[in-house]
Design a protein around this nucleic acid. Structure first.
Length: 516
DNA sequence: CTGGAAAGCGCC
DNA sequence: AAAGGGCGCTTTCCAG
């Protein structure tokens, strides 16, 4: 959470960052001096003016737990400059508040502001302050194991390559693969048009050569070691012995939260080593970790918004969602392998969510572009209301320049009428995705506020993390079931929709313990 | 030495 | 010709 600025005005506590975020979620920042210049034409001192070195904010205190790693402490700033800066900022809030308040009211954003974003602030603060306990000894042991593994693998790679080089350098790696070893160049990078060594390319090359597989495995080990195994222990707070992430409430264009310093929303889970890392997230003695996940929340939002009967029924009946869509797309007895059909249907479902085209879908599934296009066509034939939802979302967006979530959050989409095909197409995908991703984010924020309120009488149960569709709690072992029931209840009740909100809970020692 | 761009990749 | 929504972090590499 970055430093905040706010006043109470006409019964509305006004936070300039949050207000500006709701007005335009896509702007790069909501620095108060920038807002002042734009809304009141007043040129104010910035944190950078006062302390230099790209400072974004000055904290009033000694950067206490959970106040944002990017804020520079007031103690590091020359006193006279800091006094002028602080006084001016207090004034800026007073100048900006009525302007932003007018925008919130005029643009129908006051409701989502007052019922969602503002009440979320103390919840996020509490989650940041609670922090997460990390088993640093376990990570240290993993570091040694991975080191040995990396050494062995790099030796193998250098033998195959006929010499040593920096595997981490895409430039050097490309030279080895495409010049020395003469592997085919399947793709080039976006900006420099250099031969790509990205994972999709190496996967493809691995079918006919040995070295790309080794590179991929080396990279995975290196990534997990550098980003998590070795980095997390350095961020353990000396006073609390825990890791305190910083949640940013005004970054994501869709309304999602983001996490940084460290980012705890991208802790590995997919691979065996990833799950090993996740096991290092622990609880204090006597406590356990409870997790609660919304099951397929974005597809449920799509079902709700589109009112597509097949999707709605699938969720109401509680059947396997991807399997049900497979049956709808391919027929009940097409004669093909049902497991494979489910897998294809799952990819088509996600393709629709993100606006993926037949070209990329074909590569993912491993079929021709024509076949992939037929899958997409079959999907829309089976789910005409989804097609209609996409069409009316785009029509309204072209007319108004805005898309909205279930809770009235909005995203500006100014490029929707661009003459540049690529910009226009990208904008269309953003416009279709935002109501889905953003409504899911709204629901999760609502759930966090309600769960937090329900846990206020129980300070021994702490919410310690939020990851888009999941909440993590640390609770006394003996009362894990009790708190799990409270959380599930509040999460399921966070929104009234025409499909149920299903929550999968994990009750036990480890994060994701019960997800197996 | 620092900053930024680019490539690559972890998660939902 | 391009071709997937939303993030943040690490490493390399180069410029100042």
């Amino acid at each position: 959470m970055l430093a905040r600025h706010g006043v109470t005005l006409g019964g509305l506590a006004l936070d300039t960052m949050l207000a500006s975020y709701l007005v335009d979620a896509t702007r790069s920042a909501h620095l108060i001096e920038d807002l002042a210049l734009e809304h009141t034409s007043y040129k104010a001192l910035s944190a950078e003016d006062v302390c230099g070195r790209g400072a974004k904010a000055i904290s009033l205190a000694e950067v206490p737990v959970g106040r944002g790693a990017k804020a520079i402490s007031l103690a590091e700033v020359p006193v006279d400059a800091a006094v002028v800066y602080a006084c001016e900022r207090a004034d800026l809030v007073g100048q900006l508040a009525p302007v932003l308040r007018g925008l919130l009211l005029g643009e129908q954003l006051a409701d989502v502001y007052a019922t969602l974003e503002l009440p979320l602030v103390p919840v996020l603060k509490a989650v940041e302050r609670a922090g997460v306990r990390i088993d640093t000894a376990a990570l240290a042991a993993q570091s040694l194991t991975v080191d040995r593994e990396l050494a062995q693998r790099s030796a193998t790679i250098f033998e195959m390559a006929g010499g040593e080089f920096n595997i981490n350098s895409p430039k050097q790696l490309a030279e080895v693969l495409f010049d020395r070893l003469q592997l085919p160049v399947l793709k080039r990078t976006g900006t420099s048009k250099a031969p790509s060594t990205a994972v999709e390319v190496l996967e493809e090359l691995a079918l006919t050569h040995d070295i790309p597989r080794q590179i991929l495995e080396w990279r995975q080990l290196m990534k997990l070691k550098g980003t998590y195994i070795d980095a997390l222990p350095l961020l353990v707070h000396p006073q609390t012995g825990r890791v305190h992430t910083c949640f940013n409430q005004a970054v994501a264009a869709t309304g999602r939260l983001s996490s940084s310093d460290p980012n705890l929303q991208n802790i590995p889970i997919r691979t065996a080593l990833g799950r090993e890392i996740r096991r290092a997230f622990t609880a204090d003695p006597g406590n356990v970790l409870n997790s609660a996940d919304y099951s397929q929340i974005e597809f449920r939002v799509l079902a709700h918004l589109s009112e597509e009967p097949v999707l709605v029924d699938a969720f109401r009946e509680g059947v396997d969602f991807h399997e049900r869509t497979a049956v709808k797309i391919f027929g009940a007895d097409s004669g093909r392998d049902p497991h494979q059909l489910r897998s294809i249907a799952k990819m088509v479902n996600y393709a629709l969510l993100y606006g993926k085209g037949a070209f990329t879908l074909a590569k993912d599934i491993g079929v021709t572009q024509q076949a992939a296009q037929e899958f997409i066509d079959a999907y829309f034939a089976g789910f005409p209301r989804v097609r209609a939802f996409i069409d009316r979302t785009l029509e309204e967006a072209r007319a108004t320049g805005v898309v909205k979530t279930m809770y009235g959050r909005r995203r500006l989409v100014p490029e929707l009428n661009s003459r540049d095909f690529q910009r226009r197409a990208a904008s269309e995908r953003e416009a279709v995705n935002m109501p889905i991703q953003g409504s899911a984010a709204d629901i999760m924020k609502r759930a966090m506020i309600d769960v937090h309120a329900a846990l206020v009488p129980h300070p021994e149960a702490r919410m310690i993390l939020t990851v888009h569709d999941e909440l993590l709690f640390e609770v006394p072992e003996a009362r894990a079931e009790e708190f799990s029931a409270i959380v599930r209840d509040k999460m399921q009740g966070a929104a009234v929709m025409n499909v149920p909100l299903t929550v999968d809970v994990g009750v036990g020692e480890n994060w994701k313990d019960a997800k197996a």
